[in-house]
Design a protein around this nucleic acid. Structure first.
Length: 812
RNA sequence: GCGGAUGUGGCGGAAUUGGUAGACGCGCAGCGUUGAGGUCGCUGUGGGGUAACUCCCGUGAAGGUUCGAGUCCUUUCAUCCGCACCA
């Protein structure tokens, strides 16, 4: 586990860590060596924000938070190996990260290029996407601009094909995560070709465009380039174009913002010649919705079959000519773009191969073949995945270990100088990167020529920190990034548990990093794909209690401040509006502090509750009623065990056997539940077993055995209670060390099964038959059944379906 | 805008993956225990109908495939999450 040290644990943590702990304890009982560590993803903006808002140093804030959170985790009873604990802001850790950066630089996995950032012109600082709200800086309120900076990049896009293909091998990853990653990598087959231009500045005689829909080439009505396209730059000498480009660069860099912003364009006056008909000229526009990072930063617009192009063409009065129409329809004016799936058959009326009905896929392949035959373009495979920009203009991160020398240029630091430590004497009273304005830190000497030089003042994206921590856990204090023998012994991660929010970025970056670490000698080849099994857990949610103040603004109330019987605020008696459950968040005050739950009910109640009811991949709703019910159940278990410990009932053969069967069933169901990450089902099985035990008339000896099995089966979820019960019943040693129970298969099978009998698909009767009775025999009994005869009322049976051990269906 | 998911009683959810819909828990109701309340124990609890009966309806909505659909297919509605500088 590798949380961000915010300072307080919340129910989401409790649920996440309990899941990990249940698996760790179960696997350990089942005889495995388990590495179950905890560390801290400790760099990042919140520490700097805290320093800006409340003073103090990010380091003090972060290590203080780590100590607080650790203290809150301890009472949860997690079986964590704290000897492996580390934080990414420990120089020992980030120094090794710098060493890897240098190895990756030497292997050509790192390079520099320009990239666009959110720039706040008032605070003179780079903003994260989350700091851009409605296109404005969150502190200054100034309109944000897109601006270019030289930044460091990892060549993750070189691995696009590998990262995509290897997804197929990740059998124990959720299908949806693999699909999301595949879409993110975004492999596409398309046509790249060059338009000949007319009226363009020197050096722009052609304009390269990339399209995944070359079949719509005859529906082209314009060409468009990104405001960041070199041609747009070249045209900025025209003040009107410069003004437009400045306008188009307004707003943030996030895909959502770019794609939902109002589409604006500017006709450059330049024309391009259609590759299939040089006399047909298309205007070249600069448009704000074209991304420089994808394809060539230039497109041809086919408004009939792309909604963005359609909106753009409608706004600027450009032609909208359909290339294909639905099969069996006639051409008619479009009110929106017609964009069927490429696998769907449509009728091409302006296709490159004449009038015919075919799928988009076929037409695209033909178009590429045609372009290649005519020599104006070639088929190209492109990926949506961009290289990973890691430069951050911030203090609280891992310094990038390079030096800028006036003579030698960009020079890597020497490994013996690592770690390049962050200076402690920094202030946050002025915007911008404290490293950049530090009086001395950036002054150094060039590792190559020894002359004065200056340090890189950018730090690394915190995603870098979290891309290899799992490897570091195998040897947390090694003098190299990893210890090969330890990495080889422990890797891969058998079970990774995280939130679905990590489905794409973190997990993709980690997969890339493991490959890069393998290539630089820090991980064995088997760990190139580092996580064997992935589980994405849901959130913990809670109802929201809202009132409205005199100005009509919402006021939120903590659950403990609300009287739930009357739905009023305890202090004022005001009626609250109850808003359905949502993710627990401080701003909505729908939070339950795990510390309060532990104080009121104990850690086992918190652990049991977050594992019960909801399947772990789904959200779980925290309710006070549920927490109380859990506490009641656990004390009932305690009472039952206590009674049994004091009992002396004689053996009762039938009852003893029935209880043993219930125990075997519970062992099988709980084991299957934990193995299958269905903790809610494991808990349901434990409820059922507890009820059976409570009602059982078995002798004390049999009950004692059953209660010990109950303690063992509960121990991964409620370790404290389980130990108490175990020792009260005379169990040897710790229940945590006892080997996991096995179910006797003979006790799991019932001799008789109840078969429902359907008549025309509706259940009308049931019969009890021996488990392996032959189908012909079952048929006879079924057809002789009174209820069946009554319903058949003499009608002839048309068909009889017998599914052995399941169901009988009589069709009349 | 693009991508991913979810939808079953009053509530959280289960359904061996196409074979008895509602396991288990909460809540609610009745009874018992108690001076009373709580705890605890027992019983009941999808909706409708009926004196009663496996009588009818029912898994967001509409259609379809099948002996049989919560599960598969098509269309549709609603809600939630991610979108590359939050972690």
């Amino acid at each position: 586990m590798f949380p961000y040290p915010s300072g307080r644990i919340h129910m989401g943590h409790v649920r996440n860590y309990t899941m990990g702990d249940v698996v760790a304890r179960y696997k350990s009982s089942a005889g495995f060596s388990v590495l179950h560590p905890m560390g801290w993803d400790a760099f990042g903006m919140p520490a700097e924000n805290a320093a800006m808002e409340r003073g103090g140093h990010p380091k003090t804030w972060t290590y203080g938070n780590i100590a607080d959170m650790k203290a809150q985790m301890k009472p949860l009873g997690l079986s964590i190996d704290w000897s492996r604990e580390f934080a990414t802001c420990d120089p020992e850790y980030y120094g090794q990260q710098q060493a890897m950066f240098l190895d990756m630089l030497a292997s050509g996995l790192v390079y520099r290029k320009n990239a666009v950032v959110n720039w706040d012109p008032v605070d003179m600082t780079v903003l994260a996407n989350e700091q851009v709200i409605d296109g404005k800086g969150w502190r200054s309120g100034a309109a944000v601009e897109r601006r270019e900076l030289t930044q460091w990049f990892f060549r993750i896009s070189d691995y696009s094909e590998d990262l995509l293909d290897a997804l197929d091998g990740l059998k124990d990853w959720p299908e949806k995560v693999r699909l999301m990653q595949a879409n993110w990598i975004g492999k596409s087959r398309g046509l790249q070709f060059a338009f000949d231009t007319a009226g363009a500045p020197e050096g722009f005689e052609t304009l390269e465009v990339y399209t995944t829909r070359p079949d719509t080439l005859l529906g082209a009505s314009f060409a468009a380039i990104s405001p960041d396209h070199p041609l747009a730059r070249a045209l900025e000498t025209d003040p009107k174009i410069a003004a437009f480009v400045a306008e188009a660069r307004k707003g943030g860099t996030s895909a959502e913002e770019i794609e939902t912003a109002e589409k604006i364009g500017f006709d450059t006056g330049i024309r391009v010649k259609h590759p299939l008909n040089p006399t047909w000229e298309l205007p070249v526009w600069i448009a704000n919705f074209i991304l420089m990072d994808y394809g060539t930063g230039a497109i041809f617009g086919c408004p009939a079959h792309d909604q963005r192009d359609f909106d753009f063409a409608t706004k600027y009065g450009l032609a909208i000519k359909p290339v294909f129409i639905p099969e069996g329809a006639d051409e008619s004016p479009l009110t929106e773009a017609f964009t069927p799936l490429k696998s769907e058959k449509v009728r091409y009326i302006r296709g490159l191969s004449g009038d015919r009905v075919e799928t988009g896929e076929q037409a695209v392949a033909e178009a590429i073949a045609l372009a290649e035959a005519k020599g104006f373009g070639q088929g190209v495979t492109k990926f949506r995945l961009r290289d990973w920009g890691i430069s951050r203009q911030r203090y609280w991160g891992c310094p990038i270990p390079v030096v800028h020398c006036p003579d030698c240029g960009v020079v890597p630091e020497r490994k013996e100088n690592l770690p390049i430590r962050l200076p402690d004497d920094v202030t946050f009273d002025v915007p911008g990167n404290p490293l950049d304005r530090h009086p001395t830190w950036r002054n150094t000497t060039c590792p190559a020529c020894g002359k004065p030089a200056r340090r890189e003042t950018d730090t690394m994206d915190t995603f870098v920190d979290s891309s290899w921590y799992y490897a570091r856990f195998t040897s947390p204090h090694a003098a190299t990034p990893t210890d090969p023998a330890e990495a080889d012994y422990w890797m891969n991660v058998d079970q990774y548990i995280g939130g679905i929010e990590h489905a794409i970025l973190h997990l993709l970056y980690s997969r890339f990093f493991a490959r890069a670490m393998n290539e630089t000698g820090h991980l064995p080849a088997k760990a190139r794909e580092p996580f064997n099994a992935l589980f994405t857990q849901g959130m913990v949610t809670h109802e929201i209690y809202k009132t409205t103040d005199a100005n009509g603004r919402p006021v939120y109330h903590l659950p403990e401040d609300v009287d739930h019987e009357t739905a009023t605020v305890k202090a004022t008696g005001e009626k609250v509006e109850i808003i359905p459950s949502a993710k627990m968040s401080k701003s909505k005050k729908n939070v339950v502090d795990p510390m309060n739950i532990i104080a009121a009910f104990g850690a086992d109640t918190a652990r049991w509750f977050v594992m019960s009811d909801s399947p772990p991949e789904r959200d779980v709703e925290w309710t006070s009623a549920g927490a109380e019910a859990t506490a009641k159940h656990l004390s009932q278990v305690w009472r039952i065990a206590d009674d049994i410990a004091a009992g002396d009932a004689p053996a009762n053969e039938a009852e003893d056997k029935a209880l043993a069967r219930a125990g075997a069933r519970a062992v099988a169901d709980v084991t299957a539940g934990i193995e299958g990450f269905a903790f809610n089902k494991a808990i349901a099985a434990l409820f059922a077993f507890t009820n059976a035990l409570q009602k059982s008339q078995a002798g004390t000896a049999a009950k004692r055995d059953a209660a010990k099995i109950l303690a063992q089966l509960m121990s991964p979820m409620t370790p404290h209670l389980a130990e108490e019960i175990w020792s009260g019943l005379g169990g040897q040693g710790l229940v945590a060390r006892a080997p996991w129970p096995k179910a006797d298969p003979a006790l799991l099978v019932d001799d008789n099964v109840v078969l429902p009998i359907q008549i025309n698909g509706k259940r009308r009767a049931e019969i009890s038959v021996p488990k392996d009775m032959a189908a012909a025999e079952v048929e006879k009994i079924a057809l002789a059944n009174e209820d069946v005869l009554r319903f058949l009322a003499g009608q002839p049976v048309k068909k009889l379906i017998v599914v052995p051990g399941r169901i009988v269906n009589v069709v009349v």
